[in-house]
Design a protein around this nucleic acid. Structure first.
Length: 589
RNA sequence: CGGGACGUAGCGCAGCCUGGUAGCGCACUUGCUUGGGGUGCAAGGGGUCGCGAGUUCAAAUCUCGCCGUCCCGACCA
């Protein structure tokens, strides 16, 4: 049993001025954390108790499917060179030199170290599958740390890695993690959802994120109320209602129309009396490509032009996938003139020699959004100031390099599975499971012998959970102006026993004995034995996230105390002799 | 990295425009008081005014540079 009077729980009446989101304000006010620098936080007594409980849950569940390791945060450069990520990680990686001048970095993730162990030690399919995990500190030099503990530069992650002999094995390891993650987040008492995620530059075939809805989050997620479809906006797809194409005009060949001063989609559509749905939006981008020479790569810029339906928005993550993760940026004015021979506002696909396939690197690419596939008689720019073109038909009078999905889903569009309207929410990512494939075993040279004595690369998965984000998300889900309440499993204490008046001997001793008996029944009890006025103690009790409170006051003369549930503030008189049973019943309920 | 704001006691802020004794609330210490929702009274302690340079007889205040923090954007395996 812990006595408040002996503890360091520095609660604040006011939130720090630079805290914006609820969890940040409350974590500081409740004395869980203190800030040391941008995206760097110290965990004090209560904060540490909570994250330790979270880690214990994670550990208990992970131990059922894997083995716990503990890897170094300090990594040599050569290791990261071997996977190609020393340069790929860019500025997000903290780098330092040792006294001999050798380069080191602080680990952002541990595919490299795990794969290094695997390549040195794993020899046979008989040793597979393996699931190795750790709970360890990660360092990422985020360009913009923000929102208290939501985006930080040093944080604790449970990261796990699986090694299997084949894709079926990976499926099984992945599924184990899926189920384990559900158990972990269920035990932590979170309301979460699992969504399809964008694979990003990690590649890989499948990836799902565990998300908690909250306005404080940074991710946009799309979900269907009717069925279980849910995806990150970076990945989400939807059904679009069919659009009636315009009738061809004249001989059906591209037909220039004078559109003086009409530059935007809306202007042109209004001017010509058509819907933006019959217009083509032309986006001019440049992609940075290298020739793949690892030692002295030649880098060059190449034009990539995107065509979208006039009323659709381009999604950067989808574009990134379409160009295999290469860097893209909008074209500058002179680059636009070079390619289109026209000012912006009148750009279109005609008159340019486009690459005929994705593999043809010699010409500019024309990527057309799938929503335009099969459409006809669209209106686009003429590549000539003050002119647009009618009768544009993809695959007819111009030929896309490829049709790809580039479109951002919008709220209210139709679910790809069941057709019901989709909703959009912001959310915070608390876990991510990932089929990596052969990326690291290939690049780093991990090999085992298969059943036929043939050398093969093991197939990998990686799986992460943000420990502090579980705490933060729980607070975002359950707070009011007076504080927050955590699920019992991750709260620093199960119950706080508030002695309303330490000077009243009967109240004081009743508080002691209640706290003692609950503690010996297996609850984590905090006894507020401070010589403070009751109001101060109640305010603090409401603030610090403990789910239950027992008020010990004047009613002790009737052998009665008051149990307050923080989430609802519902209170109930309970006989002192029945208090253990009362909590026992709660636990089994 | 681009745009914006801020930096004065542990926390929240005023003072700066118009240069001249550094102030308020909370917290803290001591005493009394009070005892079911941040009790009241009194007396105290605590500040290189982010750092550095410049202007001036004199700088928290004006000028320049740097650092730090937050917000928007870019970015975010």
């Amino acid at each position: 049993m812990h006595r408040w009077s002996q503890l360091f729980i520095p609660t604040l009446r006011e939130a720090p001025a630079d805290a914006e989101v609820a969890s940040h304000k409350l974590l500081v006010r409740a004395g869980y954390v203190r800030q040391l620098g941008a995206g760097i936080y110290s965990f004090l007594f209560l904060g540490n108790r909570s994250t330790q409980k979270i880690m214990n849950i994670v550990r208990e569940e992970m131990d059922k499917i894997g083995q716990e390791f503990y890897l170094p945060a300090l990594n040599p450069r050569e290791l990261w060179e071997s996977s190609g990520r020393w340069s790929a990680m860019g500025e997000n990686m903290f780098r330092l030199k040792d006294r001999k001048g050798a380069d080191l970095c602080l680990g952002m993730t541990h595919e490299e170290v795990m794969t290094d162990i695997a390549r040195k030690e794993l020899r046979s399919y008989k040793q597979l599958p393996q699931i190795w995990y750790q709970i360890q500190t990660k360092f990422r030099d985020e360009p913009r740390p923000k929102s208290g503990l939501l985006r930080v530069r040093q944080f604790i992650m449970k990261d796990a890695y699986s090694f299997d002999i084949d894709a079926a094995g990976l499926d099984a390891s992945y599924q184990k993690h899926y189920e384990t993650y559900c158990r972990i987040f269920d035990r932590c008492g979170l309301k979460y959802m699992v969504i399809d995620a964008h694979s990003g530059a990690m590649g890989g075939s499948q990836s799902q994120e565990f998300m908690v809805r909250t306005p404080a989050g940074e991710d946009q997620i799309v979900s269907c109320e009717k069925c279980d479809y849910a995806a990150n906006l970076e990945k989400a797809i939807s059904k679009v209602d069919p659009v009636e194409d315009l009738k061809s005009e004249g001989d059906g060949q591209p037909l220039e129309v004078h559109t003086p001063g009409q530059k935007t989609i809306e202007d042109v559509a209004r001017f010509l009396g058509v819907s933006p749905k019959n217009k083509i939006k032309t986006l001019a981008m440049m992609v940075t490509e290298s020739d793949g020479d690892a030692k002295a790569p030649k880098v060059r810029q190449r034009a990539v032009v995107l065509l979208m339906r006039g009323d659709h928005q381009m999604n950067e993550a989808k574009l990134s996938s379409a160009v295999a993760g290469k860097e893209t940026r909008p074209m500058q004015e002179d680059e636009i003139r070079d390619l289109f021979k026209s000012p912006a506002g009148y750009l279109g696909p005609l008159g340019i020699d486009w690459a005929t396939s994705i593999t043809d690197q010699s010409k500019p690419m024309l990527l057309v959004d799938k929503a335009l596939e099969g459409r006809s008689n669209l209106i686009g720019g003429a590549n000539k100031e003050d002119f647009h073109v009618k009768n544009l038909t993809p695959g007819g009078n111009f030929h896309p390099t490829a049709y790809v999905d580039l479109r951002s889903v919008a709220a209210g569009e139709n679910c790809p599975n069941c057709g019901a309207p989709l909703r959009m929410d912001t959310a915070v990512e608390i876990g991510h499971i990932f089929k990596l494939g052969y990326k690291y075993s290939d690049s780093m040279g991990a090999r085992v012998l298969d059943r036929n004595g043939k050398e093969v690369a093991p197939i990998m998965g990686s799986y992460g959970i943000g420990i502090e984000r579980i705490l933060t998300a729980a607070i975002e889900q359950s707070n009011d102006e007076n504080g927050f309440w955590l699920p019992t499993a991750i709260a620093p204490f199960d119950v706080v026993v508030v002695s309303a008046n330490q000077k009243d001997e009967q109240i004081r001793s009743a508080s002691e004995s209640i706290a003692n008996s609950l503690q010996s029944s297996g609850y984590d009890v905090l006894l507020d034995d401070r010589d403070e006025r009751p109001g101060v103690k109640f305010k603090d009790a409401d603030l610090v996230g403990i789910p239950f409170r027992i008020n010990v006051g004047k009613k002790v003369t009737e052998d009665t105390v008051e149990v307050v549930r923080r989430s609802t503030l519902a209170r109930e008189d309970v006989k002192i002799s029945a208090i253990s049973d009362y909590f026992l019943a709660l636990k089994s309920a």
